[in-house]
Amino acid sequence: MKKVYIPAALLSLLGLVDALYLTVEHLTGETVRCTILSGCSEVLSSRYAVVAGFPLASIGAVAYFTVFSLATLAAFGYRAAGTLLTPILSAMFVVSLWLIYLQAFVIREFCQYCLFSAAITSALLLLVVIGRFVLKPASV
């Protein structure tokens, strides 16, 4: 079981870097400028990019850090941390689906960093679900 949490911790680090990058770009105003390489401005300058005064990306960074912490603790044998991962990642996955819906049907633009984050969350959930419910504890 522990072995699943090591790649989960590493994956969540990738998500953390992605979310931190978006947070920094949001705070410096760079992602809200249109550029040749990125279509993020439409998404990140939309009203959905800020929740209760906080950049959505910063909330994502907190979520990824939480997942990283729990996965690290679980990898070192803290079983309660592993149990918490599934509901947290499920919530993050639902939020990711909602954000993809917003990008596809409301804003009608995609931000590659947001899609990357959704992919990371999906992979994390898949990994943890496989680890907890599919693989037998002795073989994982």
Binding site: L27, G29, V32, S45
Partner: peptide
């Protein structure tokens, strides 16, 4: 480090 040059809260044109 990356945001220290930003003087205050996020500013979005628009």
């Amino acid at each position: 480090y990356l945001t220290r040059s930003v003087p205050s809260a996020p500013t979005v044109v628009g």
